[in-house]
Design a protein around this nucleic acid. Structure first.
Lengths: 203, 203
DNA sequence: GTCTATAAGGAGATAGAC
DNA sequence: GTCTATCTCCTTATAGAC
């Protein structure tokens, strides 16, 4: 095989791992399958990664980073809180529809980390990232829309995260398109009802 | 070992499997570990179960059945919707606190089924059971409390299921007691706000 | 850096004595 | 029905030639 920097190989192996793990699940993914997917030889693996576990952790970080990119450009669309909220949920939903297996994988990775002694921190970091991301999102909505949240924003963010994740798994199991849409609309309405228009001028 | 009916052995093996799988996770559970936990010999396994997969499916059904028992006696307490709702969520939360690993296991079982070709139906049945259970619960609350739900009850039930499950996984990851309590209170308030007192007398 | 060969250790399932 | 011994397969990880 052509020469290639270890860094580049690592990146290719992470991509291959995401592909294989999405397709077959974490449990059924072997290092052999990953290197084969990347078109490399089995011996390559262990001078790119210390262990299979190190690869899994890197997959976890990579996927988390990408999750946000899927909804990042939603602010450009509007300054109306209701529209931004609906836009964000639609964007998230589009990502679910486009990559259902990747979202299933994401759940598996969380649980894998929780079961792996010493890796609980990876799961904690993953969730803290999502919660903080949504929280920042809500803060930004309030700023743009000139409103405040009745509920403490950390609580509202985690409530939103919880519901979104629950809706996701329900769809992954049932594939009931219409119900999932209704549930996300229900969540959007709940959020909109929590927003309180600020009194226009102070001072 | 003493003679014992296959039926009884199956029951003991299911209990042992729940113990081992809760402790170590589905991925790390071997048939050897299960029979050892049950104090049996390895050879026993395959004339009690056709395969490891058959055992896992039976574990799944057993756990689902028990989940409801944990909140079943909540109606005796009150006829006030708000109190019943809070009571039910408290009961659920108590079960989570008492058996966190079993709830983690439950998630793993869902995903295992989704990844196992031909077993998706087990996951679907699991979720349909939870959704229908919560729906019946909401209907009963409305009947007892003399109120109706503004939101269609199938939607409200699935929204509740989604949020509960999201809160559960957040706690399993973060173990943030106080936040989880706030999130469940938030959900309870949301449900109470959806209840609409019926006009006392018709006709 | 790259690749082949292999070490070392389980896994699920079964055969066959009792 | 019960239990021991074992078959067969597949895993991660490493040694060592090139």
């Amino acid at each position: 095989m052509a020469r290639m920097s270890v860094t580049q190989r690592r990146a290719l192996l992470v991509e291959a791992a995401i592909a294989v793990m999405s397709r077959d699940g974490v449990a059924h993914t072997t290092t052999r399958a990953v290197v084969a997917e990347a078109g490399m030889q089995i011996g390559v693996f262990h001078y790119c990664f210390r262990s299979k576990e190190e690869l899994i952790l890197e997959v976890m970080e990579t996927i988390s980073r990408r999750m946000f990119a899927a909804v990042a450009d939603v602010f450009s669309s509007s300054t109306d809180p209701a529209e931004i909220i609906h836009g964000a949920l639609r964007a998230y939903w589009g990502d679910i529809r486009a990559n259902p297996l990747q979202h299933l994988l994401n759940r598996e990775l969380t649980q894998h980390a929780l079961r792996q002694p010493g890796e609980e921190a990876a799961a904690v970091a993953q969730y803290a990232g999502y919660a903080d991301g949504i929280e920042a999102f809500l803060v930004e909505i309030a700023r743009i829309g000139g409103c405040t949240w009745r509920t403490p924003v950390d609580e509202l963010a985690r409530f939103t995260l919880a519901t979104i994740e629950g809706v996701t798994i329900q769809w992954l199991v049932s594939r009931d398109e219409q119900m999932s849409q209704r549930l996300l609309d229900h969540l959007a309405a709940h959020l909109c009802a929590d927003a309180e228009l600020e009194v226009a001028a102070e001072q």
